[in-house]
Amino acid sequence: MLKVVVIDPQDNVATALEDIRSGEQIKLDLAGKVTLLPVTQDIPIGHKVAVAFISCGDQVIKYGQPIGTATQSVQPGQHVHVHNLISNRGRGDV
């Protein structure tokens, strides 16, 4: 069983199906093409890991749709969550 799932071929993040430790190599199924990705941070189950380089200010894509904006550059294999991803919507604070 793969440890992550990429929901849509356009996604730049995958979702962890089990806890992944920093240093692990994970298999990615990108639209049928299986590649290896070294994970460089701990990814708890259910959390997201970048599967492509994401520049600061880029949209993070899951389900083939934007889910928010990266607040820093993210390397493939890094954790994507509230520390580096903000919402584009419901922002009464800006």
Binding site: T15, A16, P44, I45, G46, H47, K48, K62, Y63, Q65, P66, I67, G68, V80, H81, V82, L85, I86, S87, N88, R89, G90
Partner: peptide, 13 residues
């Protein structure tokens, strides 16, 4: 958020 959801867009989708 603890369960891995980061933004309302992600939750809504």
């Amino acid at each position: 958020v603890a369960g891995g959801l980061t933004t309302i867009e992600e939750k809504s989708l």
